[in-house]
Write a protein that binds this DNA or RNA. Structure first.
Lengths: 200, 200
DNA sequence: CCTACCGATCGGTAGG
DNA sequence: CCTACCGATCGGTAGG
């Protein structure tokens, strides 16, 4: 009778994923070693290779798991209100909350994606496009027609707003949920009415 | 008569700095080799070590040169107008223009700073603080008192705005000066009046 | 004795 | 799930 897959297979895989993300974030993907990942997991290096065929495969799984979860959360949002401003507030808050606890994965995404072959990078870009388009639609709804109807300008605006979101971990990585909600509100106020009209 | 330092010593040092920045950005600091840096410069690896005692020293010089130039440009700005909005437009434009041609250095700053010892990182953080404070002062001048007089809120606002600036290279690294001016204007319009009042 | 380089190779460690 | 290794390549340095 063949041996079955360990009952904690997925649990262990997730543990490797999380430990590797933290190590890749803190040491850098290129300097971090597979032996270091193993040590962080309390298992042997050879055991890591039981779950992943290569260091690159491990990197890709970290990023794909992270981005697919982000996409599912953002694209699966339901909006109580039809008001464009309210919908923008909902999505901005959800993005910052979805980033909570995923600083390591986010950092690895920004600093190590280029280590992957182009085809893998394209898969990751598709996940990102999926949820960025959700944000773009909310921004188009509040933008003047001169922006909403101009693809390049609308994209620039979208990237500026995601710049605020994606930069957040650099200065507030340990933020709790309430802090994230407050920062999302500040971004929303800023986007909707500018700094002079910040409601804080 | 003793031989003098090569007349092209500084020129060559700058060439190494630029080539290394590009290689570190494209391959990642940890994966990039000193042999690769040497090859990109068309010189021997031993020759690199004549200019820099270690790979880490090379990394630090890339980042310090980059940040000191940024600081000098931003902190050395003179403002024609006393209007806070005009001053904000000037500094936002100057930052995006200062980033032009420095995408590699900017990328290395974000992805490899953690490879430096803490004391070196602190030196780099001081350069960044110097010019971020310039931006913060312009933002305080247009913010409501509830933000301008609250250190935490003013810092959050400042980081949001620098998020837009520092994220720019991710989606528009090849932007020319006019494009950068247009993006700086969009950020300024956004900050001053919100998306509904974008003037484009 | 100096600075400016070179080809060759060191001791260790990487991914697998 | 481990110890024991490999081909290769790393950052850094030798003599000249």
């Amino acid at each position: 009778m063949p041996r079955t897959i360990a009952k904690n297979h997925d649990t262990k895989r997730d543990a490797i994923l999380k430990a590797a993300a933290k190590l890749f974030a803190s040491e850098g993907y290129g300097r971090a070693s597979m032996a270091g990942v193993a040590a962080a997991c309390g298992i042997s290096k050879a055991n890591i290779y039981h779950y992943y065929p290569s260091k690159e495969a491990l990197l890709f799984d970290i990023l794909e798991s992270h981005l697919s979860e982000l996409r599912d959360r953002i694209c699966g949002l339901t909006y109580d209100s039809d008001a464009p401003e309210d919908q923008l507030r909902v999505i901005l808050t959800e993005v910052l909350l979805a980033y909570q606890g995923a600083d390591a994965e986010h950092d690895v995404l920004l600093s190590a994606t280029q280590a992957l072959p182009e085809e893998k990078q394209e898969i990751l870009r598709q996940y990102q496009r999926d949820f960025i388009y959700e944000g773009r639609a909310r921004l188009a709804a509040i933008a003047p027609e001169s922006v909403a109807n101009d693809r390049a300008k609308l994209w620039a605006l979208t990237m500026l707003v995601f710049g605020m979101l994606n930069w957040h971990y650099k200065w507030n990585s340990a933020a709790d949920a309430d802090t994230r909600r407050a920062h999302a509100k500040m971004i929303a106020d800023l986007v909707i009415g500018g700094v002079p009209n910040l409601q804080v």
